[in-house]
Simulated scan of single mutants.
Amino acid sequence: MPRKTAKSDALSVSDTEPVVTAPPAKKSKAPAKPRVKKSAPPAVLSSAAVVEPTTDQVAEEAYLLWLSEGQPAGRDLEHWLLAEQIVRSRLSLLSAAVHSA
């Protein structure tokens, strides 16, 4: 039985056949840097500043809500969210009063 040579096993491309290649891979661009808004002057920020309550302030208010409703079980998240609104409202009123005086 005749042996196959290495040349006969390989694929050959003649000079007349076109060679198809994949297009060159595009270089990935670096991700765009996020644009940072220029901040307003301090005088404008202080009059419209949002005052965030502390965890202790919210916890105390939530506890008082819980007590006032008869210590119901399973409503802790509801009390917490309501307490955040109440404390934010108080702080913004206080802040507005201080800035208008």
Results as ranks from 00 to 15, higher is better:
Arg35Asn: 13
Thr54Gly: 06
Met1Val: 03
Ala48Trp: 01
Leu77Lys: 12
Tyr63Lys: 13
Met1Trp: 00
Arg3Trp: 04
Ala96Ile: 02
Lys4Ala: 04
Ser47Asp: 01
Leu11Lys: 09
Ala30Trp: 03
Val51Ile: 15
Ala48Lys: 14
Lys29Asp: 05
Arg75Val: 11
His99Ala: 11
Val19Ser: 10
Ala25Arg: 09
Pro53Met: 03
Pro18Lys: 05
Ser14Gln: 06
Leu67Thr: 05
Lys37Pro: 08
Arg90Leu: 13
Ser39Gly: 12
Pro2Trp: 02
Glu17Ser: 13
Ala6Tyr: 11
Leu45Arg: 12
Ala49Asp: 10
Leu82Ile: 00
Thr55Gly: 12
Leu81Ile: 07
Ala40Cys: 00
Lys27Pro: 00
Glu69Ile: 02
Asp9Lys: 15
Ser39Val: 05
Trp80Ala: 06
Asp9His: 12
Leu67Phe: 02
Leu91Asp: 09
Trp80Asp: 10
Leu65Asp: 09
Pro42Lys: 10
Ala43Gly: 01
Lys27Arg: 01
Leu11Cys: 04
Leu64Arg: 15
Thr55Met: 08
Leu67Met: 10
Ala62Trp: 08
Glu78Arg: 12
Leu11Met: 06
Ser14Cys: 08
Ala6Asn: 13
Leu65Arg: 15
Ser68Pro: 00
Lys38Glu: 15
Glu78Ser: 08
Thr16His: 03
Thr54Lys: 04
Ala10Val: 10
Ala48Ser: 15
Val20Ala: 03
Pro31Ser: 06
Ala22Phe: 09
Ala40His: 08
Asp76Ile: 01
Ser95Pro: 00
Val87Gly: 03
Glu84Asp: 07
Trp80Gln: 11
Ala96Leu: 05
Val50Phe: 13
Glu52Thr: 14
Pro72Val: 10
Ser89Gln: 11
Gln71Ala: 05
Glu52Val: 06
Lys33Val: 14
Lys7Tyr: 11
Glu69Asn: 05
Pro34Ala: 15
Val58Thr: 00
Glu84Val: 03
Lys29Ala: 02
His79Arg: 12
Val98Phe: 10
Pro23Leu: 10
Ser12His: 15
Ser8Tyr: 01
Leu91Gly: 04
Ser28Met: 04
Gln57Ile: 01
Leu11Asn: 09
Leu65Gly: 06
Val51Asp: 07
Leu81Lys: 12
Thr21Phe: 08
Ala83Met: 00
Ala48Glu: 12
Val36Leu: 13
Asp9Ser: 14
Val51Gly: 05
Asp9Tyr: 12
Val13Gly: 06
Leu11Asp: 10
Ala101Val: 11
Gln71Asp: 05
Ser47Trp: 04
Ala97Gln: 05
Val51Gln: 04
Ala62Arg: 13
Leu81Gln: 13
